[in-house]
Design a protein around this nucleic acid. Structure first.
Lengths: 206, 206
DNA sequence: CAATAAATGCAATAGTCGTTGTAGTTAATC
DNA sequence: GATTAACTACAACGACTATTGCATTTATTG
């Protein structure tokens, strides 16, 4: 038995998923043509159909794998910055800056999330729920349990607090102009302060 | 000079804009066909092209008019609920419930905003900025100046505080299940409390 | 090198969509 | 009721797209 078993199958699949992620995040589902994805991935369109049933399932795989990957990285950041919190403000700001980093991957991630939000009614319910659970909800839970361990905070509903924290540090989806690093830091710092003051224990020091 | 001057021109234009709003908000720009918009508006496709240059400009007009209309209503709500604030929590919760009302118009509005967020890179920069300024930014400014008038709050940056408030009360874009009215109230109340505690003056009563 | 599985290039199908032209119909004004 | 602007129905064009089949090439394993 010969053939091409390990040859490029896995490589090609990854190339396709990478190209599809780029194109879907930039152009949205409907605007993204298979040809554009193939070009971005340096792959023939036929190969895409050898690996994936159709465009819709390719999209579902892309958003699911992206959710898994990003959630893993975010949980890693949560563990790194919030496992042992010495200075809540400093640690949370560092966490917020890491998550909102204007790196390429983060930008692509936020763009894809916006596409999912816009397309959610046109994606099978099960796929949306799977994305939600293994992505945002998972991160929210991890963040909630870490927040509960920070002293000086009063969190009647840790999951809701985690949602609030994320909302307060999320970057502007449409900035009038790209923020400078200082502005980004100011944005995150202000969000963290509002959060910390908002959830400060009544008997905590001012 | 005879003709059909007042006949239906204004009516048709409104019908088209209404149908386009519905379809664009539901399906997004790329998925929305002119035929679907025409059907939704009970108008022939040809009439659409008699009123608007092309699909792209129709979309820009739709989002611009929607931004104007919603901003006007939101500012009205801001004036109604926050002109004279007696009980900050109660008044802000009422405001938040009014803005996040699961009425048809509010739902359509939020859906269209998600579409704009997803499409922002494919809309002429000038149109996006105009939408931003006459929509979200305008509301944010109005809210900021009202918030500055609420006693017991310490707002170093009222505009940022307004952004925080909006973020804390915005409904979930993809709920696992439609929230009950009680859940909606709990969500808004929790957001308002976090905001109020977060921006409470240091010398204010607990 | 031989065998073979995967990838490619290319053509073709079938459908959709934006847009325009045209001829006829409707309805408002005079 | 005549005039005329607006609306409609309909066809048509060109472009794009998802998807498949097939013949050919590539690269990997034995």
């Amino acid at each position: 038995m010969a053939g091409r078993p390990r040859g490029g199958t896995a490589d090609k699949r990854q190339a396709i998923l990478g190209g599809a992620l780029t194109v879907f995040a930039r152009d949205g589902y409907a605007r993204s043509s298979i040809d554009a994805i193939a070009a971005e991935a340096n792959v023939s369109t036929r190969t895409i159909y050898n690996h994936f049933q159709d465009k819709a399932t390719l999209f579902q795989v892309v958003i699911q794998e992206s959710a898994d990957r990003v959630a893993a990285r975010h949980i890693e950041l949560i563990d790194r910055y919030l496992r042992k919190v010495t200075d809540p403000e400093e640690d949370l700001v560092d966490f917020g800056l890491a998550i909102g980093d204007p790196g390429e991957e983060e930008q692509t991630h936020f763009a894809l999330v916006r596409q999912v939000h816009a397309e959610s009614e046109h994606i099978p319910r099960a796929a949306v729920e799977a994305w939600l659970r293994s992505g945002p909800l998972k991160v929210r839970q991890a963040l909630a349990s870490r927040l509960a361990g920070i002293p000086g905070l009063d969190l009647p509903d840790p999951e809701r607090a985690a949602l609030h924290l994320m909302r307060l540090i999320t970057p502007d989806p449409i900035p009038l102009r790209p923020p400078t690093p200082e502005e980004t830091r100011a944005h995150v710092t202000a969000g963290i302060r509002a959060f910390l003051y908002g959830y400060r224990r009544a008997d905590a020091p001012a």
